Simulated assay, not measured.
Amino acid sequence: MKKSKASDVAILAIFIAIMVVVQLFSQFVINVWPFPVKPTLLHVPVIIGSIVLGWRKGAFLGFIMGLISFVNATIVTTPTSFLFSPFQPVLGTQHGSAWALIIAFVPRILIGIFPYFVYKGMKNHFGAGLAAFVGTATNTILVLSAIFVFFGSVLNWSVGYLLSAIVATNSLTEVIIAVVLTAAIVPALEKSRNRF
């Protein structure tokens, strides 16, 4: 039991390290990426961690994803930083909004919970892919919906704009990447963990 817990903590630390590397790499790629589609990959380790380590550790990884988003938005000022950090002023004001913490953390924590239960009901490649789809959709739909609810009037978003943003090219690309990677990686990780 102790060996298993130590192993899970080590794997959790590896997932966190992967997330930090993916974030740093993504920041570099976004600056030089010549194409209009700029998918994020930070949610993929959260989804895989949720499936392999369980929903509690998955939720923790989701919290780490939210923390990375919050810290990045606090340090790097962009036109949308106020959406993820209360320390960045909302457009047209001199102050931030605490609602940014909800956007930064809640959807990301749920990314670490939902995939576990999806995969638990269907432990195969298809189940892993479906779990990745659910995790990615959770991120996209909840983040954009929260932005619409809390800052829609500031951004002049309509319901039509929200729906088009949810099914935008970035979202589809993120789903495809997450499904392919998760369906390939999860069964291999499960086999290797069962050997020890």
Rank of each mutant, 00 (worst) to 15 (best):
W33R: 01
V71W: 10
G96C: 13
R193S: 12
F15L: 08
N170I: 12
V32F: 11
T138W: 02
S164Y: 14
L155S: 11
A165D: 06
K2R: 12
A104V: 04
L142Q: 10
A132S: 13
S164M: 15
G54Y: 06
P34N: 05
T182S: 02
G160S: 07
V21S: 01
S153M: 12
A98I: 14
S192P: 12
H95Y: 15
L42S: 08
T77L: 15
S85E: 05
L110K: 10
H125P: 14
H95A: 13
I109K: 04
M65G: 15
S192D: 15
P34E: 07
V179D: 11
L61V: 00
S81L: 08
G160D: 05
V21G: 00
V37F: 10
M65F: 13
V154R: 06
L144Y: 09
L24I: 13
L42M: 13
G49T: 05
F148L: 02
E174A: 05
K57T: 13
K2V: 14
L181T: 10
V20M: 06
L110G: 12
G152E: 04
L53K: 01
A146V: 08
V106H: 03
V143R: 00
E190G: 08
K3M: 11
G66M: 04
Q27A: 14
L155Q: 15
I18P: 01
Q94M: 11
A188S: 07
F84Q: 00
F150N: 00
A104I: 05
A128E: 00
F82M: 02
V167C: 02
V175K: 05
F60R: 10
H95W: 13
G160E: 03
V22F: 13
A132N: 06
F60A: 13
G121Y: 09
N156D: 09
V21T: 05
P45A: 11
F82T: 00
T173G: 09
V76Y: 12
P45W: 02
